[in-house]
Design a protein around this nucleic acid. Structure first.
Lengths: 223, 223
DNA sequence: CGGTGGGTTGAGGTATTTCAAGGCTCGTGG
DNA sequence: CCACGAGCCTTGAAATACCTCAACCCACCG
């Protein structure tokens, strides 16, 4: 895993603006491509960069010693991830498919924030929205049924993926399962159940499925 | 539910310092007592104050429409809660026992943070530590067994409650269950199991139990 | 063409929930 | 002072949602 650092100085001031950190802080950015399944950073590694998905998708997760995995978030095109408050990553991040990311070296974003109010605000905004997502996910993991979890997942993806009408899920059943605190078989069964109720359709049988979601019908089930 | 606002101007500059916001921002604070079970604020209510537990304990939770409850956090003496990034609370907060809280009116803490770097930093610190707690809790809710959850809960409380050796849990079994994504019966059984293994002891049978935790023995189970 | 990596579906197992009963403590009121 | 009920906790037995194990299918690819 290697990163082409400090390259392309001409692009220096662009990154933060593009990713939502609207300041002109002194940082450098570069792009890098990770192959499907490649690790972008590991849990407990020192956090030297922050990342933005240019193309592809990323999963970030925690592991228990016996291999049980909890995926905390999927990062789609445009999303920023790898932002840590302490010095070390608290997750492992992997490319779900071949993925292009932009990196910014940021030894101490917190330090920049001390003097730049705009950076401070953006940091807080991002952290707060991550927190909000986590809070909702705790409710899902602690109290929802498998059908409700899968339905919530579909709605979230429908909301976040660009495609109008049909969405191509980049992640496999196991990823979905580890995101929802289920097994892949349970996810598959829940999808079949929803399919049977006419809530969703599968377009093409070409491995990575395209899902057509009928949000109205899903809402009628009021899960 | 009423709050004695803007009282005691002499204490004005003290509050933020005491709660960890180390700046001298222009805010006012007051104290208020909530009876056991009383609601401190409700989900979706506008967030006009932030709170610190002076004495007692608080639970904050989300509800599903059919009454299923997920407790996101317990707030113990010294903890700050009710801090929201948007304008509205995303949880309901209730006093678990008779509880004294300090309140600070803060229409827009984010606004203060624009000009005061120390406030900005403290806001970020608190939000980040909330996020970290939520991330760990997602792993617990999504992937741990009932015994592991209860053990983790005991360790967390052992760490956060002041008492040396013995701790008095302020919350009932149902609260613990709703925090851990279990039923109260499962929590009770897990505690009995741990008791049977000599990991913990109960002091007195006086309703609100005192728990003696043997951290070494608990660690030996390596859950 | 055979192998690999998903995905689906079925059958059986199990951890946890649900339902139910009983015990203990405490407060209240006769 | 005692009886009573309410609240909380524990424990048992039965139900069930989800998991595990397994077989099979399909698409893709060397």
């Amino acid at each position: 895993m290697f990163v082409n650092l400090n390259a392309n100085p001409a692009s220096r001031p662009r990154f933060l603006g593009e990713i939502g950190l609207r300041s002109q802080a002194d940082v450098s950015s570069s792009e890098f491509k990770y192959h499907r399944g490649a690790e972008i950073f590991g849990e407990a590694e020192p956090a030297e960069y922050i990342y933005q998905v240019i193309d592809g998708s990323v999963r970030s997760y925690k592991l228990l010693s016996d291999g049980r995995r909890q995926i905390n978030a999927f990062h789609m095109v445009g999303d920023i991830f790898g932002l840590e408050h302490g010095g070390a990553h608290r997750f492992t991040a992997e490319a779900i498919v071949d993925t292009m990311v932009r990196l910014v070296k940021c030894v101490s974003l917190a330090h920049i924030a001390e003097t730049d109010a705009a950076v401070a605000r953006d940091l807080l905004n991002m952290t707060a929205s991550n927190l909000q997502h986590a809070e909702n996910h705790m409710l899902l993991l602690g109290r929802k049924t498998s059908l409700e979890r899968v339905a919530a997942f579909l709605l979230e993806m429908d909301h976040r993926l660009p495609a109008a009408g049909a969405m191509a899920l980049p992640m496999c059943r196991r990823d979905i399962a580890d995101y929802l605190g289920l097994t892949l078989e349970t996810v598959s069964r829940a999808l079949s159940t929803l399919h049977g109720k006419g809530v969703l359709g599968f377009v093409g049988q070409t491995q990575r499925q395209i899902v057509l979601l009928d949000r109205r019908k899903l809402a009628e089930l009021d899960l």
